[in-house]
Design a protein around this nucleic acid. Sequence first.
DNA 1: GTGTAATTGAAACAGTCGTTTGAATTAATA
DNA 2: TATTAATTCAAACGACTGTTTCAATTACAC
Lengths: 218, 218
Amino acid sequence: MTKADTRQKILDAAEVLFAEHGFGEVSVRQVVHEADVNVASIHYYFGSKDALIEEVLSRRLTPLNEERLRQLSAFEEKASKSGTTITIEDVLYSLVGPAVRLSRGTEAGRHFIRLVGRMFAEPSDSVQAMLKARFEALFRRFNEAFKQALPGVRRKDYFWRLHFVIGAMSLTLCDSQRPALLSEGACNPEDVEEVIAQLVAFCAAGMRAEAPKKRRTR
Amino acid sequence: MTKADTRQKILDAAEVLFAEHGFGEVSVRQVVHEADVNVASIHYYFGSKDALIEEVLSRRLTPLNEERLRQLSAFEEKASKSGTTITIEDVLYSLVGPAVRLSRGTEAGRHFIRLVGRMFAEPSDSVQAMLKARFEALFRRFNEAFKQALPGVRRKDYFWRLHFVIGAMSLTLCDSQRPALLSEGACNPEDVEEVIAQLVAFCAAGMRAEAPKKRRTR
DNA sequence: GTGTAATTGAAACAGTCGTTTGAATTAATA
DNA sequence: TATTAATTCAAACGACTGTTTCAATTACAC
């Protein structure tokens, strides 16, 4: 067995187990058992369990965010060629499309994406710091694009709505089965383009909403 | 110290710790240390760690969901008296209002609500079964109300959108600080009625959106 | 084929885990 | 106040945690 094989087997097994049960609940011994390698391999290749977690995440997160930026650039170029500006649907499509496709393509992608969704609800400082580092560039780029697509929306309203978009997206990535269960089969979570279209339509309408007014507290 | 005191101290400490670090990451010894009681108390009062988790959740979830139903009924009554039907804003307001208020009121509420948000991203079977049991009645009741408020929306579209609403709400409850951080202070997560108004406006617009159309896969 | 480095293996490290025990203590009942 | 029941306590249970050690094995350059 070559070096690459063992590393890969550990990462694959860890991805599945972490997605299924969370970081804290999965022991390195479960990982090495599933990967069919020795206990010491994890520390030989990664140094520690925490370092392994980092590796599991960055392995797929980097290409995913690159793809998002690629799609966004393509939409912007297309718009500028036709003398228009990018639409909110285009921006959302670039943001959620690659992620949903990854989450529904292979079994590995499904596990990984659930892992990311789980992390967004994870308040632990180390995880949040990691997320921030990996998403900062993406965030700045999409902020500009959203601004262009939503000229009339106030700054404050925009940031709240971005937060809601992230929430809707996270849950959709993290839990693919609930809509099917709740609707008793009417929703098909495996119809990737349908999921994307639903998510984009919902978020675009929410983003474009009238500025909210507070109610009297009851 | 009376019996009630010890039980209460354990529940309070467990709520904070579980919300902060998750179920698996918190040991019963951390809980008893924080609660300043003996290790055996947890098994004396609750039987097991799992049973303690259940107790922590149901202690606040039951009154929360009762309040949601109360508000919904009040809106429905008001509408029927004036010969109109309930609006989507009213339904959403009943769903998210009590939860957001709980999450921003006391420190205990904040911790508890983060716990619930975290659980929605938790795929573990035992947790999902627990959630299902505790939310089933609420779910049926709100389904009817949404149906009334959204006569033109197809069944399939509705269930997808409900899923997105839950996602937006979950993240907002779970992570109160991110909007403030991302917006560099423009959003104030402590302005409870503002948060509710923003969430309701976003979700109402999303719920009322035009039926989505799939794009060509790129 | 020999020597050297990379990798794997089984065993053990010191801690921590959830849980249990049974005696010591407190509170309630009579 | 005496008796009984409820509660607390320190200590220990075996199992499991992440990590380390070092000999055995494999791969590769010469």
